[in-house]
Simulated assay, not measured.
Amino acid sequence: MSFHIPTIDITPYRENGTDAERAEVARQIDASCRSVGFMQIVGHGIPDEITNGLTEAMDAFFAMDLDAKKAYRTPPHINRGYSPPKSESLSLSLGVEQASRMNDFFEAFNVGAGAADYPHVDDLPQPAYAENVWPEVDGFEQQVQAYFAEAAKVARTMTRIFADALGVAPDYFAPRTDHSLDVLRMNNYALPSGTDVTLDGDLIGMGEHTDYGIVTILWADQVKGLQVLDNKGNWHDAAPADDALLINLGDVTAHLTNEQWMSTLHRVKPPVIDGTIERRRSAAFFHDGNVEYVIETLPQFVDDEHPEIYEPVTVAEHIQAKLGGSRAGVRNESAVREGARVLASRY
């Protein structure tokens, strides 16, 4: 049987669909979450001009000189600003150590929801809710903020669908995400001049990893490179259809469902053509939940055949361990299950 990432139209959840139409969308989401953990959605409602503005902003920033971009770099514990090539290793977020510890060649720029975005909540912890660092690029802040707002709407539509698919109250996620740790990571897979990277068979654009939170909304261009691991240990190429967004589950969702919904392992290995890397761009919106949210498995997913896998943990504790691996180079010893899947995969 060939590997297939389903395409699902979520319009009924955005435009007052009938109960039957919404139930069918929830059924398709549930089936995809159980079988693949990745899907692509259409009918998401993000206008083309907003997406085009995002890509213009990304292109303008990443075209800057490497030293100029490094002026917007932040310490590893602050998930904002610029990450240059070979400053991260996503596989370490799973406790899997590659030959070179910090070897992912992608560059990225991160923005997120800061404390000022949630005026209804007092004393949000820093640096989890840090304010953003904005580069001096014409239109960048406005264009990125416009897309961030639209992606946040899509993320909350997805959690509303998840609630129906999981059989919980429609507003289950609302109090757990009303000051969510939301981050937009804009990625560029290309080698700036002066970057020391050897083009060989082991080159990693972004190492094997699962996403950390509830759901990820991914815009990507259609250049090959993204690969998804199936439940038999095989890697498959994944690229969005026209006007589609890729959706994948994060660790929080896998924890909630006792891994009956999977947080799918993925990586990026853009093709090397004529000795150079074909440029690839993506922008991932991570919707992770409130920092103090205690992630506990839903009781309907625990029975004699499915004993509980995870201990309760807060979103803050979970993400701190993950970021400590990917950005600070500290091997995450708590991701035993995911790391075993990577090591068993067929490269």
Results as ranks from 00 to 15, higher is better:
S2K: 15
F3Y: 06
I5E: 14
I5C: 15
D19K: 00
E24G: 04
V25H: 15
R27S: 12
I29Y: 11
C33M: 07
S35H: 13
V36R: 09
V36L: 09
I41F: 04
V42A: 01
V42Q: 10
P47V: 00
D48W: 11
G53M: 08
G53W: 00
L54Q: 10
T55V: 12
D59P: 07
D59R: 14
F61Q: 03
A63H: 02
M64L: 02
D67K: 05
A68G: 04
K70C: 10
P75H: 12
R80N: 11
G81W: 10
Y82C: 08
S83N: 14
S83A: 08
P84I: 08
K86M: 01
K86D: 05
K86H: 02
E88K: 01
L94E: 03
E97D: 07
E97V: 05
S100D: 04
R101Q: 09
R101Y: 12
A108W: 07
A115K: 14
A116K: 15
A116C: 15
Y118I: 00
P119H: 06
H120A: 09
H120P: 11
H120F: 01
V121W: 02
D123G: 05
P125D: 07
A130D: 13
E136P: 07
F140T: 07
Q142T: 07
Q143C: 06
A146L: 05
A149P: 13
K153I: 05
M158P: 00
G167Q: 06
D171T: 06
Y172N: 00
F173K: 12
F173Y: 05
A174S: 14
H179M: 05
L181A: 04
D182L: 00
V183H: 09
N187Y: 15
Y189Q: 02
P192K: 10
P192L: 03
T195A: 07
L199A: 11
L199S: 14
G201L: 08
L203Y: 02
L203W: 03
I204T: 01
I204E: 02
T210E: 06
V215T: 12
D221R: 13
Q222D: 10
Q222L: 12
Q222Y: 11
V223C: 14
K224N: 15
V228A: 04
K232S: 12
N234F: 13
H236E: 03
A239I: 12
A241S: 07
A244H: 01
L245T: 00
N248I: 01
L249S: 01
N258F: 04
Q260P: 13
L265G: 10
L265Q: 03
I273F: 10
H287L: 03
D288Y: 05
D288K: 08
N290H: 15
T297F: 10
T297C: 03
F301A: 09
F301M: 09
F301N: 04
E305P: 10
P312L: 00
V313D: 06
A316E: 06
H318M: 11
I319T: 03
I319L: 05
G325N: 08
G325S: 01
A328G: 12
R331V: 05
N332V: 12
V336H: 05
E338C: 09
G339Q: 11
A340H: 13
R346H: 15
